[in-house]
Nucleic acid binder design. Structure first.
Length: 118
DNA sequence: CATCTGACGACCG
DNA sequence: GCGGTCGCCAGAT
């Protein structure tokens, strides 16, 4: 299984926002659902700048155990994400991804031209 | 090859 | 709100 699409997706998560495994799985249509998303994150290679810490469990619960748990918390806080114990205020930081099926960038046919914005 | 486990989630009590 | 159970898929033993 190549988690490439998953990694790409996670990299799209803006700073200060978070996503749940379920949402991730749903957005990418991962077979098996959230579990598969979790597996993908577990396979997250280091050195790719993948913000794996922005992926949390349903309800914003931090499911990561071990030494990385603290790390995730720290990283999230440093990004401005509000945390409550082992839980993030997902209601305030939930990121809504755009429906991206595979990887298709919409080409900008027209230029904005008008610089007379407000 | 058979089993177990796991960075999950929805449900139930 | 918390803990236990089941379903799901893939990798590890």
């Amino acid at each position: 299984m190549s988690w490439e699409p998953v990694f790409r997706f996670v990299q799209r998560i803006p700073r200060g926002k978070v996503l749940t495994y379920g949402a991730l799985a749903a957005a990418l249509r991962l077979p098996g659902g959230a579990r598969t998303a979790g597996r993908a994150m577990g396979a997250t290679p280091s050195g790719r700048g993948i913000p794996w810490h922005r992926v949390v469990g349903a309800g914003g619960k931090l499911l990561i155990r071990g030494p990385h748990a603290m790390l995730q918390k720290k990283l999230l806080e440093s990004e401005g994400v509000e945390l409550v114990e082992s839980r993030v205020k997902i209601d305030r930081h939930l990121w809504k991804p755009a429906k991206q099926k595979k990887n298709r960038q919409s080409r900008n046919t027209k230029a904005p031209a008008r610089g007379k914005l407000n």
